[in-house]
Design a binder for these strands. Structure first.
Lengths: 230, 230
DNA sequence: TATATTATTTAGATTTGTCTAAAATTTATT
DNA sequence: AATAAATTTTAGACAAATCTAAATAATATA
């Protein structure tokens, strides 16, 4: 079955919002899709008629199994194209989202699968988000928020929360990207800012806001084992 | 300026039809776009209002300079994507047209230009059609129809006329593609069929219909120079 | 040239996705 | 619990792109 770009965007938005809350409200969708609540209601009725979601008026929506499948395949396309744009066409990671929003609606399944092969079956997109496989299985990455790490923790940035142009600008400036290794040097309880250090660089401070938007893979701090004396 | 996929398709179709006739009729467009004449009339009015074409009722249409520019940029995108699909994703040349019809409407100019660079600035698409450059200049290839060649002529296939799945199927079967060298062995006036020969292959017959759909670059037949006796 | 045929346009509908404004429902607050 | 506030839905409208059927214009034919 083929759905309009607009419908695909609704399904995708619902999928993402469902990560936070099991049931998604009309208003939340309207905000996510930059449209009006009335338009959302209209569309939900159509998507319900197509059995892509469970919806009862005033109750919010959930995707059906089918709706979820469609959403994941869009996300798969989006992330594969992002990977292509960054690693083959040398785009900056902060500029690819918008273009991928268009490319993800190109329908050919064969194209998606060939693209994946051409890219060497990447596991995550340039923002660190996992790429669902062609059966629509998406690895769940168990990552942790940078803000939650203890002092002296060493970690690798694996994902960016709010992928806005603003955060990307800041991260570029601070030279932080997916895969960057960080060490937490100090935490200030006054404003919850923390001081971090990159390899071969002096430490600098990042705000609580930023630290809550950086997902990392946490590696246990290496304990300086004192050499046995003999 | 950004135009809808539908409008872009109209401009593209008019451009192609203008290669044949200076002025394009409503019916010709309806047929090319697989739609009804009434729908064409409606759209022509809108495109005229946007100054993309010259149109007076009952008189047919021509693209304006602006309309032509838009059309060529779509064609540029179409052909670059076709090249990508064949040379990077290993698609067969007969299956890429449909996918490129979708990809050509992705708007980012930067994407198109980066793609062109990534592909190494190809001059023609997999069907042999020239790829316009980023200023919208398109090389005019002076090719000739295979049917018009004299006996003994040697030529290289440079373009396919009607790029339908049907002709592609036939050409694949006969092992003819862009770049294939052919020698015209015989011409039969009875049905205008002709016998051709590929390198290292025995001669076979092709129909007039096919011969009129194969564009070739003609090389003067090599005259067997008798070796000087001494 | 008058008439038949074909091509094109107009008029009026339809579908998709959106909107505003008003009404209905749910949730929060006194 | 009654009322206020917020959320959600309905009703009615609109723009884009399409359609059918009828009307009009251009072209071909007798």
């Amino acid at each position: 079955m083929k759905y309009s770009a607009s419908k695909e965007n609704y399904l995708k938005a619902i999928f993402h919002l469902q990560q936070e809350q099991a049931s998604v409200s009309t208003n939340a969708l309207a905000q996510a899709l930059q449209t009006k609540a009335a338009s959302v209601t209209d569309m939900l009725k159509k998507l319900k008629a197509q059995k892509l979601l469970h919806y009862e008026r005033y109750k919010g929506v959930k995707l059906t199994v089918e709706g979820r499948k469609v959403a994941i395949l869009i996300i798969r396309k989006h992330r594969l194209w992002e990977y292509f744009l960054v690693h083959k066409l040398s785009f900056g990671w902060e500029e690819v989202h918008e273009i991928a929003e268009e490319l993800e609606h190109v329908s050919s399944k064969k194209l998606t699968d060939r693209l994946e092969e051409f890219l060497g079956f990447p596991q995550t997109d340039p923002h660190g988000d996992p790429i669902p496989d062609l059966q629509g299985r998406m690895p769940v990455s168990k990552q942790v928020i940078l803000a939650d790490l203890p002092v002296n923790a060493i970690c690798t940035v694996s994902n960016i929360g709010d992928q806005t142009a603003e955060i990307m600008e800041l991260l570029n400036h601070k030279n932080i990207r997916i895969g960057t290794k960080l060490e937490v040097k100090k935490k200030f309880s006054f404003d919850n800012s923390l001081e971090v250090k990159l390899r071969n660089q002096s430490a600098f401070t990042i705000s609580e806001h930023l630290a809550k938007n950086l997902f990392v893979k946490f590696e246990e701090p290496v304990v300086e084992k004192s050499k046995p004396v003999h």
